[in-house]
Amino acid sequence: MNIFRLLGDLAHLASIFILVHKMHTTRSCRGISFKTQALYVVVFVTRYIDLFYSWISLYNFVMKIFFISSSCYILYLMKYRFRPTHDPTLDTFKVEYLAGPCFALALIFNYHFDFTEIMWTFSIYLEAVAIFPQLFMMQRTGEAETITTHYLAALGIYRALYIPNWIYRYYTEGTVDPIAIVAGIVQTGLYLDFFYVYFTKVLQGQKFELPA
């Protein structure tokens, strides 16, 4: 554990709390992509299969349980509690185009060709691109509620902080995890456009609007 990793995980937690808070206070899931949220459930469930056979630490265990349960809870809120506020006609990105190639890549580029390892690799690749339906939805509407942008910023910062974490671990432990590093850099890169608008406009108190 190092400070980058800890802050990254805390940013990840914060993003989930912001999202749940947004839904409860506005009693709505407007502007949130159900598909992206469903992809996160798939990501966590396929990544944390090791909950059944490997113990890393209490921290690790609690966080994994939290990520699986909170992502399922978010789907429940979107599908049942606030269903009328979700507009599926805006959420049209085809998730097959993400899951298919990620699975194929996981079969080719992995550390060991066994079930749990391929599922772990698949989850890393899928997480990198899971934000696409959400970004695509914002592209279509051209704007986002401020609280939605805070959610996305926290989520992007989480993976961005993992990058110095890997650099730190390389120097202190000699650990290198090329799959996580490449996917993590891609994942962070996808946020660059968003970050630009977020830091130059939203934090200045302006509305998140994409140029027409």
């Binding site: 995980d9 990840h12 890393i56 630490s57 994994k64 060991h112 993992y162 650990t175 996580a180």
Partner: peptide
């Protein structure tokens, strides 16, 4: 841990 020794990140 090396990647081969299990994944300790989230």
């Amino acid at each position: 841990a090396k990647p081969s020794e299990g994944h300790d990140e989230l």
